[in-house]
């Protein structure tokens, strides 16, 4: 919970600092807010005790058989 509050506080501050640059272009504002919301959502889910799937599990699922095959060539 403490982590979430710290991140939320800094994010609001940074958003106001970056807002001067952001208001020049609508697209940048959308991308920026999207990334920031994603980051804060991660910390919020962590604070609420929700399980976030590890993105590396997808990498493991896709690439593990291939690596095992390469390694078996050198055994």
């Amino acid at each position: 919970m403490v982590n979430l509050l710290i991140i939320l506080g800094i994010s609001i501050l940074m958003f106001f600092i970056d807002f001067r640059e952001l208001k020049k272009s609508r697209k940048e504002l959308i991308v920026y807010s999207g990334f920031l919301a994603f980051g804060i959502a991660l910390f919020a889910a962590d604070a609420l005790g929700l399980e976030i799937p590890n993105p590396l599990n997808a990498v493991i699922f896709l690439f593990k058989p291939m690596t095992q095959w390469i390694n078996s060539l050198f055994k």
Partner: peptide, 26 residues
């Protein structure tokens, strides 16, 4: 994303990097 000013993404990406750097290797 076709953005002109790349440094603007610094902070939002940094937040995600901070989160994933802790949880990417459990």
């Amino acid at each position: 994303f076709g953005m002109q000013n790349k440094k603007i993404l610094l902070y939002p990406v940094g937040v995600s990097v901070l989160y994933f750097s802790v949880y990417i290797y459990p």
